Simulated assay, not measured.
Amino acid sequence: MRIDLSNQVSLVTGSSGGIGRAIALELAGCGAKVIVHYLGNREGAEETVAAIRDAGGEAVSVQADVTDLEQIQALVNQSEQAFGTGIDILVNNAGNLVERRTIEEMSYDLYKNIIDVNLTSTVFVTKAVIPGMKAKGGGSIINMSSLAAHNGGGPGSGIYAASKGAILTLTKSLAKELARHAIRVNCVAPGFIEETKFHATFTSAEARLASIAGIPLGRSGVPQDISGIVAFFASPFSAFVTGETFEINGGNYMR
């Protein structure tokens, strides 16, 4: 099965490294033109763009804070201008645990930060691309949830888990809302995925080993385990699929 996304324009938020970079490379490998979004890691974003161009693909990088509504609109405007057309594929990958904190210790500012970077960004980047997708006669939106949405996450990650649970529900609602415009909305929910800043920052060596021990396939995931499923959701092979969440966790959570 060869996925062909030739002439499709894709925006991948948070694609300067980790899962986002793997997704950007995968989509470009399928022929899509890619907007590599980043917040602060300009060097990483340029490395992603260079890797795509070196492989014969087309890509540009755009900086924006996707918790800021004005910057979100500017991001989408620049993305549409970059290739002279609207966005066909949106991957809402940007997100962060931010900080481990119990609810008892939670401040309002930290709570809002976690919600904004995970949920608010997904809502309003999606809102910004809808007019262009409608004008093009359709599109594909892929949201990023987490295994934490199902099991509540690890210690001190309750608000992060709640934001990822909200994304599961939002995906279903958007799928219904946008179906009549031929815009499909699906979601992926990764489990324990290494080679990411997330686990390098928030997961101890002991927690890593404990997590892997609970995975039936006997290993942690890598970003490429996510990127292929995202490409599938972006492609015609999933043309009759919307409102669904694909669990990618090595069997650690089975529905």
Score class of each variant (00 low, 15 high):
Met1Tyr: 00
Met1Asp: 01
Arg2Tyr: 06
Ile3Phe: 03
Gln8Trp: 00
Ser10Asp: 03
Leu11Arg: 02
Val12Arg: 10
Val12Asp: 04
Val12Asn: 09
Ser15Phe: 04
Ile23Arg: 00
Leu25Ser: 06
Cys30Ile: 01
Cys30Asp: 01
Cys30His: 08
Gly31Met: 05
Gly31Cys: 07
His37Thr: 08
Tyr38Val: 02
Tyr38Cys: 03
Leu39Met: 03
Arg42Phe: 00
Gly44Val: 06
Glu46Ile: 05
Val49Asp: 09
Ala51Arg: 14
Ala51Val: 02
Ile52Pro: 13
Asp54Val: 02
Gly56Glu: 08
Val60Pro: 01
Val62Gln: 11
Ala64Gln: 11
Val66Asp: 12
Thr67Arg: 13
Thr67Met: 00
Asp68Asn: 14
Asp68Arg: 03
Glu70Thr: 14
Gln71Pro: 08
Gln73Asp: 14
Ala74Glu: 15
Val76Trp: 07
Glu80Ala: 12
Ala82Val: 03
Ile87Ser: 02
Ala94Asp: 12
Gly95Lys: 04
Asn96Gly: 13
Leu97Thr: 14
Val98Ser: 12
Thr102Val: 01
Glu104Met: 12
Glu104Phe: 13
Glu104Tyr: 11
Glu105His: 07
Glu105Pro: 00
Asp109Arg: 13
Asp109Thr: 14
Leu110Pro: 12
Tyr111Trp: 15
Lys112Ser: 14
Lys112Gln: 15
Asn113His: 15
Val117Ile: 15
Asn118Gln: 06
Ser121Asp: 01
Val123Asp: 07
Phe124Thr: 07
Thr126Arg: 04
Lys127Thr: 03
Ala128Ser: 14
Lys134Tyr: 00
Ala135Val: 04
Gly138Pro: 06
Ser140Gln: 08
Ile141Lys: 06
Asn143Lys: 02
Asn143Pro: 06
Asn143Ile: 04
His150Ile: 01
Asn151Trp: 01
Asn151His: 03
Gly154Val: 04
Gly154Ser: 14
Ser157Met: 12
Gly158Phe: 00
Tyr160Lys: 02
Ala162Arg: 02
Lys164Met: 09
Gly165Leu: 10
Gly165Pro: 07
Ile167Leu: 10
Ile167Arg: 01
Leu168Cys: 04
Thr169Met: 13
Thr169Arg: 10
Thr171Gly: 10
Leu174Cys: 04
Glu177Arg: 01
Ala179Arg: 08
Arg180Ala: 13
Ala182Thr: 01
Ile183Ala: 04
Val185Gly: 05
Val185Pro: 09
Asn186Trp: 04
Cys187Ser: 08
Gly191Phe: 13
Gly191Ser: 11
Glu194Phe: 12
Glu195Val: 05
Lys197Val: 15
Phe202Ile: 02
Leu209Thr: 08
Ser211Lys: 13
Ile215Ser: 01
Leu217Asp: 03
Leu217Met: 13
Gly218Ile: 02
Gln224Val: 08
Ile226Gly: 06
Ser227Pro: 10
Pro236Thr: 09
Ser238Ile: 08
Phe240Pro: 01
Phe240Lys: 04
Val241Glu: 12
Val241Asp: 11
Ile248His: 10
Asn252Met: 09
Met254Ile: 14
Met254Tyr: 03
Met254Ala: 04
